[in-house]
Amino acid sequence: MKRLLASREVLLLIAIGALMTVIALRFPAFIAPSNLADVFNDTSPLILLAIGQMIVILTKCIDLSVAANLALTGMVVSLINVAAPDTPIALIVLLATGFGALLGMVNGLLVWKLAIPPIVVTLGTMTIFRGLIFLLTEGKWVNSHEMSDAFKAVPRTVVLGLPILSWIAIAAVIAFTIVMNRTTLGRAFYAAGGNPHAATYAGINVGKTQFWAFTISGAIAGLTGYLWVSRFAVAYVDVAGGFELTVVAACVIGGVSIMGGIGSVVGAVLGALFLGIIANALPVVNISPFWQMAISGAAIIIAVALNAQANRSPGRIILKRAEHAT
C-alpha cells in the first residue's frame, strides 16, 4: 500500500510542480518563498477541513456540513466575543473546537444510531446549521469593529516567519499523520471503510468509528470556523458558502477513495494545495475564474480516473504470483 500511495502522491507532487512551473514561466514572482508562504497560509483552512473530510470519507461516509458547521461555529464565537470581549482567546479556541465537535457528533449519532445515509444526514444538518445562524442573528453581520482586537489577531500573528494559521495547519498535518498511522483509532478508520463486514468480525464497531470520524471532522470545522471569521474579521450567514464541495474535491484529487478505505493525510494536503495554487495563481496570470472552476473540475475527474485505473488491475494478481514463484 505504501508504494501505491507513494506513487499516487508523487504523481500529485509532479502535477503541482508542473503547475507551478507553468505559472512561474509567466509570472516568476509567484514562486518567491514569501508568496508561496502566502499561498500556503491562504490554503490552510482548506487543508484543515480536507484532513477531517478525508477521515470521514475513509469510513465510507461524507460530511457535507463542514462549511455550514464552520460558519455556525464562527458566528457563535463571534457573538460570544461581542457579548464578552474579555473572554480569553484560548477559551474561544477551545469553545470553537468543542462546539464544532458537538455538531459533528450530531451527524455521527444520526449515522451510527439511526443508520441514515451520511449524505442525507449532512445535507440536512448543513441546511439546519445555516438556518441556525440566521435564527441567531436574523441575518445581521458581525463586523470587524464589533470584534475585539485580540479575537482578530490570532490567525495573523506571525511566529517564526509564518502566521499562526499556517502553524495550526502544519500542526494538524503532523498530529493526524500520527493518529492515522500510529493509533488504533486510525487503523479502525481504514478497516471500517476498507471492508465494514471484516471490520465488524474483527471486533471493530463500524458505526462508532464513523461517529468518531464525524466528531473529528466537526471539531476541525469548528476550529477553522473561528480562524476563518477572525481572519476575515466578519461573520455572516453565508460564510464559506459552498466550500464543502471544494473540501471534498481536495480529498478526491488527493487520492482519497470515495468508496472508503483508501486515503492519507499527505494526499488530502496535496489535494488541498493543488486547488489552493490554482485559486491563487490563475487570477495573477490573468485567467478568468471560470477557467479556474473548469480546471478544478478537470483535475477531479482526472484524479478519480487515475485512482480507478490503479484499483482495477486484474492482471496484477497473476504477475505477483509469478513474482513469488521466481
Binding site: M1, Y190, A191, G194, N195, H197, A198, A199, T200, Y201, S257, G261, I262
Partner: peptide, 8 residues
Amino acid sequence: RQGAIGAL
C-alpha cells in the same frame, strides 16, 4: 466480503 480488507 467479510474476511480480509484488500486495501490494507
